[in-house]
Amino acid sequence: MSARDTILQRLRNRTGDQLPTPERDFTAMERPDWSTGDKLARFRSAMEPVHGEIHNCRGGDWVATLSGLLSDRRVSRMLVGSGAEPLATLRASTQELPDILVYDEPVENWQQHLFNDVDAGLTTTRGGIAETGSLILWPTAEEPRLTSLVPPIHVALLKASELFGTLREAMAAQQWSHGMPTNALLVSGPSKTADIEQTLAYGVHGPRELIVLVVE
């Protein structure tokens, strides 16, 4: 008999009593219906203590904010997905921006370059979670997974209108149970570790900095 069948058979032919199935009461996880303003404030108060940097922008203003932040950091090359947005807005902008590298080739063709020469990655988000200060990332062929992981700075665009109270709210509203992408992520700050004597250090394997541009 295969290991699979042996394991399943052992579990099915369990010797003891009927196992308990107590009711699952999720009330303890519920949060009040926060207004957008409340959600923004909570998002900020959850993300800032873990070193996420948040900037509020109005409409297309975000490019101006981005331009300032990137030139302060001397970013010379920024990775962007190949989707229509935000690429079109960046290209149409007259702001001073770093060289834009479009992620449109399989990573195998340019891995060294990606790991060694890219200073920042810009991604969209599929919303955020106020309670925990998290961004929902939903990588696709147009916005591949490594954009938010390999470059030392990750810039994420978040629409204020897409801020949810809790993870459960987001999952229900976006019907995650109907199908998940190959990879989905919650990102709540820059990469960090406390493995050396409980002392926090940022930028271990992922980005050292996370910048969130909240577009209202």
């Binding site: 959850a46 873990v50 309670e131 925990t132 200060g133 998290s134 998940m180 992408p181 190959t182 990879n183 989905a184 992520l185 919650l186 990102v187 709540s188 700050g189 820059p190 990469s191 960090k192 992922g206």
Partner: peptide, 12 residues
């Protein structure tokens, strides 16, 4: 932590 930096969900 209220949540860790990354929560990685892999479905394929």
């Amino acid at each position: 932590q209220h949540i860790t930096t990354y929560f990685n969900m892999i479905s394929g």
